[in-house]
Nucleic acid binder design. Sequence first.
DNA 1: CGGATTTGACCTGCGC
DNA 2: GCGCAGGTCAAATCCG
Length: 312
Amino acid sequence: MSEEFREFYYHQPFHDDQRRVSGGATNFLYSATANSSADDSSSLHPQYLQMFDPSYLSFTEFLHGSAHHNSLSTTFGSTSEAVSALKEEDKPVVGGGETPATPNSSISSASTEAAAGDQEDSNKGKKESQVKETAEDGEDTSKGKAKKKGEKKERQPRFAFMTKSEVDHLEDGYRWRKYGQKAVKNSPYPRSYYRCTTQKCPVKKRVERSFQDPSVVITTYEGQHNHHVPATLRGNVAGMFASSMLSPAPPLTLDGHSFPQELLVQMPHLYSYVDGGSTSNLYHQQQQFQQFPVDYGLLQDIIPPGFPKQEP
DNA sequence: CGGATTTGACCTGCGC
DNA sequence: GCGCAGGTCAAATCCG
């Protein structure tokens, strides 16, 4: 599986940017977990990795719904430092004995799941089944437990990151309503499901604790916020962060791009999660950050010397 | 009293 | 086809 990740590296388009941005703040990860449920652990396949190509979003974008998917090169690509792929759901199951490869760290890592429809073909054969809420606005009407069969669910972009925190549900500036909780296989900790309470906002997030390291909370966001941070929260730290990030010219950028407020807000305890997918998930203790312009040096530590830089 | 959380039931997808 | 696991719903309950 590490091979798969390796493959991921070569697929990922950030190559050049990595150097440019090396200031980079975080080593967000990118991965595509095409499907949702059940078998996330098997989702990191080349086929998914390929999904990356076309539509990356900057975190901000996909959290806010601006979604100009194809501008990755100028958005996500340039700011992110994908170091490895993290399968959002791929529990940090290190099976027992992986040792962090990069002892130093990074702020956090995240994985995302490309959602664009065009990419669907790349993994169509597999599971394009789940079709549930429509990102835009259709969701509310369809309530009944199950949806009709024919319906297709547009896959939402996702990304996950780990945070070291005592509390499960971290304040990120948005308001969430918990709508479910499930026991997670192979983990003593349950997974909680939250939905953004803002009307018509399709964003959901799942929060679970790593059973490898109970102090680590794995948060997976799905979808993009189509609204700003609730004003009522602007008074607090989260709100400040979030709102600042939402301002026309986000001040906190590394390369002229912004990061999702959720991440920023949680920076102080972000954890590094350089996931090796189903095999080697490496996550290391992360130093704490007080401010956003993150630690430019980190990236260098994170990205292995031989990290693929360019790809024809 | 209204909104959020809890929790068991239900649905769906996937592997065997 | 069956069972398992993830995800969601919604009634009941809790809380400010």
